[in-house]
Design a protein around this nucleic acid. Structure first.
Lengths: 342, 342
DNA sequence: GATGGGTGCGCAATCGGTTGTGCAACTATT
DNA sequence: AATAGTTGCACAACCGATTGCGCACCCATC
């Protein structure tokens, strides 16, 4: 309201305006005035003044003095799929609800960028660092420990900090079961089922492969090495891998376990380009995307329970787990599997 | 490397270790040592020491003293579509390239959340605030001006700060042209073409409607009020709106201009549920999604040129435009329109 | 009238950097 | 040998908040 202030207003300015001291203004503005026995009248006066003059606390100064920044940091591989983008959104919303500020950085699945981002966040003195889907979570946990900052892993587990992840093995087992149920309902031979996408270096992929194997085994089905193709996540890689499989086998797999929506993109493109109908093949995807669901209603998807994962995360932010290497698994939910009909 | 430091290392600690003064350490660590005529030998010694002890500059203290935080803020409606998520990613990448730190907040297309996020960012003393797709960009521009912080609009224009947006009208014209070309090639009557999705309060939607209208008019086609249904972006709204249209008209439109991928989701779902084939109807979408492209190769999409938009944005961050209300339009690109064949 | 307890507020140190200024010590010049 | 210029660094005052401590004043009590 007041005319263009050349410099930003400080508590010293307010103190002058209110004819009182900076320490009093500070106490009023940060809510400790009752404890410091400031009269309600003066407090109200200062609050009105601050409001009218458009005062805004300098968080840098506060953070410096308090030795607490009020900032939570998160590093993330990417924003561009529904899983990671909902992690970012829900994380931010929950932090906002608690009056905490968040900083999120994308690191493109690159260990160097992960380290660099972590270093920056530590320089800004984040109070916790959430390490999501990191290629090398332990390296970051070490950086954090050296800086005296608590860190937590999300999506991919580490050994140096507590982790919240999806129940990948059990989820994969259920997804595979759903695929096999479909095959059975349609009386199709369940031999040629392909697991495609992901990285073997990646804990989640390994667990999902194991779940896939177990689900098949418990129905007496063997899993050949050629049935499992962790060709990385990229759409092009998945596309090429599927092409190679079909060339070798001479025909499409009867069903496919696709390890992410990004791999799904390559698979679908290849099928389309080859003039295939989506319903020629039974598909499951370990990840969820509503657009994909709209285009292909018979696609079975595992939706990871991001809301619960973030909730658990915040519980650990509030009270660190007793065991600092604990790994908590959150069950994902299967979606898009209408009762199997012939 | 050194054993668990109970407190974080400061320049005072390093000064003691190196037997020199804090000001010297500071100069060395922030790169001004040559100007301050610190000997190369001492500088190197201090740098080695800092490296070995794992020193990290306290950015809060630096920001306080320098009165510059080194932070760029951005508010964003959502992360969960490819357009906005790529804005976040490219913005962050470009800022990182310049050694600038970024803070992004999602505000869910809610004016209150937008204001609150802007206030927080100003409290953290961001140096610029980028206001993306804001429902009320001018309110935020006002907050920023009062705080002496430069603000810029992205995606949706405002009148109180410079804006970078897509060339919505011309883009819509081209997309509509592509639809009409397809109709012509397939010798289908071009009367029943539906524009669906978006909000009339929204500048971009209004411009796109105008582009749609102009493209039709230049081919001698009239646009009836019922041909334009800005039913909001949500998938459910689009789904319901399409259903209403079909009920009224007694059949599907021959072609559709879908105003966003989120609306597309509802459209596709409704068509699928109704047992329609995607190729019964010619569709264009003003936004781009690779998964949608994979599922529906004949879908025509406008891909907004986020890279260029962000580049322009940073040019204005470097050197503010002469006219503070300037609005720059960046041409989007049409993708997925293979040469029309019968 | 001295003592005790509560009320209401200000003083000054502090957080960890940054930066204008000053001042020894040394080298070159006349 | 006196003067001038350079080199290399340290002093100390900030930036804007927070917070332990102290002090004046008022009222009640013995």
């Amino acid at each position: 309201m007041s005319s263009e202030p050349s410099r930003k207003l400080t508590i010293y300015d307010l103190a002058k305006l209110a004819n009182t001291s900076p320490s009093t203004v500070s106490a009023v503005l940060n809510g400790t005035w009752q404890r410091r026995r400031i009269s309600r009248k003066l407090a109200q006066h200062i609050l009105d003044l601050a409001e009218r003059e458009g005062y805004s606390t300098n968080m840098q100064a506060r953070a410096l003095r308090r030795d607490r920044s009020g900032i939570l940091g998160m590093i993330l591989p990417l924003y561009d799929n529904r899983y990671f983008s909902s992690i970012a959104q829900i994380f931010e919303a929950e932090a906002r609800r608690r009056g905490i500020f968040t900083i999120v950085a994308c690191t493109n699945r690159d260990p160097d960028q992960e380290r660099e981002a972590a270093r920056m966040m530590l320089a800004y003195r984040v109070e916790h660092l959430i390490c999501t889907g990191a290629t090398n979570p332990d390296a970051i946990a070490d950086l954090c420990r050296a800086a005296g900052v608590a860190s937590l892993n999300l999506d991919l587990p580490g050994t140096a900090a507590p982790s919240v992840i999806s129940a990948n093995r059990e989820g994969a087992r259920r997804l595979t079961d759903a695929l096999l149920d479909r095959l059975e309902a349609q009386q199709i031979d369940a031999t040629r089922v392909l697991f495609i996408g992901g990285r073997v270096e990646d804990h989640n992929t390994r667990e999902r492969i194991e779940g896939f194997r177990q689900a098949r085994e418990s129905r007496g089905l063997a899993t050949a090495p050629t049935d499992v193709v962790p060709c990385d996540y990229a759409a092009e890689k998945a596309q090429a891998a599927l092409e190679a499989y079909v060339e070798r086998e001479g025909r499409l797999p009867a069903a496919m376990f696709v390890n992410s929506t990004i791999s799904l993109e390559g698979i679908v493109r290849w099928l389309r380009l080859g003039g295939h109908d989506m319903n020629e093949i039974i598909m499951g995807c370990f990840d969820w995307d509503p657009l994909a669901a709209a285009f292909h209603p018979r696609l079975i998807m595992m939706r990871q329970d991001v809301t619960t994962m973030i909730a658990r995360l915040f519980e650990w932010i509030d009270t660190p787990p007793a065991d600092p290497t604990q790994c908590l698994e959150v069950m994902p939910e299967i979606v898009g599997t209408p009762a199997p009909r012939c």
